[in-house]
Design a protein around this nucleic acid. Structure first.
Length: 478
DNA sequence: CGAGTTTGACCTGCGC
DNA sequence: GCGCAGGTCAAACTCG
């Protein structure tokens, strides 16, 4: 069984182990805001006031502290060892899955080639249905009716290949992605969304228009996070570069604009502004999806915000696609809502659909750092077991990079209140399977858990790992 | 010297 | 059409 005991709740750690990055976090907060915010007291150093104890007493205390530190170190080493084992096992599973994928793709390719060869003898070739399996699984580009997978890849706007995609292509001997920077991409890469070429609308292909609209919608969807700026959760682990600052109307504090610089062409931007009413509150608004894997430190926030964005969109687009249960974002749409009344609000009146995650309010169990992360809250509030508490956040954080690109829009219209644990687990399994990295290992683990603990499972076939490879082809890519 | 920040100018959308 | 506000660009500047 796979267990991921790593807490992704931002930089919080249940074990309260020494965190040398705390100071960096706070400095980063200050840098990020560009607002010269004061940093909070970072040290946990205790008062060293002489209380009159004798030297012996102090020595005893020092020894005691040393023992405690050694104990913590020992625990950390054990934890590290466990993580290493898990990593190697996961890597093995990933490799095997990848090999299977390549085999399937080669089969498909051969089949396709064969069909083409046969059709060459005929004057008119009947329209072919797109190859669904490979694209659904690996092609993160927007599917068009006539574009081949290679074409779709090149159309993509400035997004570097995913590791999986790249590796597959490497194995196919095609390094397409290295030459994918089209002139349009160059000119638009960072381009102002407002500067999206208008001639696009004149393209004859309606799909292109739909895609543009879909992209625009997704691009405009925002997730706003309110948090006190001393909360390191806001330091999301990504690298940001400030590209502008502006005074916003109605707020004496300037708004700073940042873009993600962790990968060339990453479309994610964020705005940081202090709350006008309470200047100790930072409002960070994220926009867009990362096109690169995120560092662990960034997983928590990124998964939270992108999940919220996806939730927002899946609830607003109402596409009615049949892939609802296969979409991990729907899982969040279904799981976050029931518990999000106090921490997440959706604004329909805003210029762009925006969901606000308010992390300033402490949860009842305030001593639990996980409460700062809505996803953690979800996993706890929804009655998930230890498995879910450990696996789900990890899976979400790890998987969203791919998941966002595979299924942007989905149409799950299931009332949030109807969610039950069984469905959650089913959806969780689907979500896991949508992530190429962890599909094999985690889906197997979850399935075994489900079959063991959820005898009342409703028998929904969507929860099985077998069908997950054919995830939605509704959307797919920024 | 390169990377990041600052800041005024510019562009675009929207309401009137 | 005009003005306003939000958002972005890019040259100048700063910093390590």
């Amino acid at each position: 069984m796979f267990r991921f005991p790593v807490s992704l709740g931002g930089s919080h750690d249940n074990t309260k182990q020494p965190q040398p990055s705390d100071e960096q976090h706070h400095r980063a907060v200050m840098d990020e805001t560009g607002l010269n915010l004061l940093t909070a007291h970072t040290g946990s150093e205790e008062s060293m006031v002489d209380d009159g104890l004798s030297v012996d007493m102090e020595e005893k205390r020092t020894k005691c502290e040393n023992a405690q530190l050694r104990e913590e170190l020992k625990k950390a080493v054990e934890e590290n060892q466990r993580l290493k084992e898990m990593l190697s096992q996961t890597t093995n599973n990933f490799n095997s899955l990848q090999m299977q994928l390549v085999a399937v793709m080669r089969q498909q390719e051969d089949h396709h080639h064969l069909a083409k060869t046969e059709s060459k003898g005929k004057a008119i070739k009947p329209p072919e249905a797109p190859e669904m399996v490979p694209r659904q699984f690996i092609d993160l580009g927007l599917p068009t009716a006539e574009a081949s997978s290679e074409e779709r890849t090149t159309v993509r706007s400035g997004s570097p290949p995913s590791p999986l995609e790249n590796s597959v292509l490497r194995q196919r001997g095609k390094r397409i992605l290295e030459i994918e920077e089209s002139p349009e991409t160059e000119s638009n890469g960072w381009g102002n969304p407002n500067k999206v070429p208008k001639h696009n609308a004149s393209l004859s292909n309606c799909n292109v228009i739909d895609q543009s609209a879909a992209e625009a919608t997704m691009r405009k969807a925002r997730v706003s996070v309110r948090d006190r700026f001393e909360n390191p959760t806001l330091v999301d682990g990504c690298q940001w570069r400030k590209y502008g600052q502006k005074m916003a109307k109605g707020n004496p504090c300037p708004r700073a604009y940042y873009r993600c610089t962790m990968a060339v062409g990453c479309p994610v931007r964020k705005q940081v502004q202090r709350c006008a009413e309470d200047r100790s509150i930072l409002i960070t608004t994220y926009e867009g999806n990362h096109n690169h894997p995120l560092p662990p430190a960034a997983m928590s926030m990124a998964s939270t915000t992108t999940a919220a964005a996806s939730m927002l969109l899946s609830g607003s687009t109402m596409s009615g696609q049949a892939d609802g249960l296969m979409n991990p974002t729907n899982l969040l749409a279904r799981t976050m809502l029931p518990c999000s009344s106090s921490m997440a609000t959706i604004s329909a009146s805003a210029p762009f659909p925006t969901i606000t995650l308010d992390l300033t309010e402490s949860a009842p169990n305030a001593d639990n750092p996980a409460n700062n992360n809505p996803l953690m809250q979800f996993s706890q509030r929804s009655g998930f077991t230890e498995l879910n508490q450990s696996v789900l956040p990890q899976m979400m954080g790890q998987g969203f990079y791919y998941n966002q690109q595979q299924s942007r829009f989905s149409g799950l219209q299931m009332p949030a209140q109807s969610l039950n644990a069984g469905e959650s687990v089913s959806a969780a399994t689907a979500a896991i399977a949508a992530d190429p990295n962890f599909a094999a290992a985690l889906a197997a683990a979850l399935t075994s858990i489900i079959s063991g603990s959820n005898s009342h499972q409703n028998g929904n076939s969507n929860n099985s790992n077998g069908s997950n490879v054919t995830t939605s082809n509704v959307d797919k890519r920024p």
